[in-house]
Design a protein around this nucleic acid. Sequence first.
DNA 1: TTAGATGCAAAGGGTTTGCAACGTC
DNA 2: GACGTTGCAAACCCTTTGCATCTAA
Lengths: 130, 130
Amino acid sequence: MITHRNTQQRRAILDYLRNTVSHPRAEDIYVSLKSNFPSLSFGTVYRNLRILSEIGEIQELRYGNSASRFDGNTTNHPHFTCELCGSVFDVEEEFIKLDKVIFSGVKNFVIKSYRLELFGSCLHCKNSHS
Amino acid sequence: MITHRNTQQRRAILDYLRNTVSHPRAEDIYVSLKSNFPSLSFGTVYRNLRILSEIGEIQELRYGNSASRFDGNTTNHPHFTCELCGSVFDVEEEFIKLDKVIFSGVKNFVIKSYRLELFGSCLHCKNSHS
DNA sequence: TTAGATGCAAAGGGTTTGCAACGTC
DNA sequence: GACGTTGCAAACCCTTTGCATCTAA
């Protein structure tokens, strides 16, 4: 069995993800932590993101062909992606009731989890573009 | 304005996607069509998949870090991915009612579209693994 | 002390792109 | 004939990996 070590880098990555709502990409994390860890490498960032995902401390979000985004909130909540500015927002609460609808609606498969992703424009972009 | 041409390769790719339920990857399409188009290249497959997606003739599906899958069915239907065998299935009908729930449930964003992805095990895998 | 983690750089997978030749309109 | 498209190969982006060194436990 593998024991994971509580390294400074791993702690910093997890802290960073738990203290932001911006769903950063690996590169964002790398750039942000580089000042505190001048020798930090992409390999370390990616390795830790992978490990943290595997042990359920964070979750990885993928959209289109672009880089993964990471979320320190591991509850199964939907995300809203603004197609104009690219920002990703959490959508909570309103959707708790969806769980029941989704889990009870399907007959031919055994559903273990689901992911709901919403697309459109955020209020800021909607107002400044219209 | 760009006028798209109805080339043999493009037609073959679209036909292929319209006549399968297997949600193939670019490589699957490439391999399948290679016998009819010996000089077919990946560039052509990818370029056409991109164009066909942009004009709404097909849709692209992405999961995890693996290659995109493509679907000739452009209705907004959920997909079920079996975590044991990797197959991707369409989930129709049962979910039509979800549209209303989702589009009426969110207040802070202008939703244009959504994607629902389900994960679990298909009946075949469930039976053979239990 | 010792396995797991780091930093670096090179390699990897999937996808895109530059360019000359080609095919469709 | 004009311009979108193809085939080829090289480039690209994001991510993973091999290896020697380091470090948490």
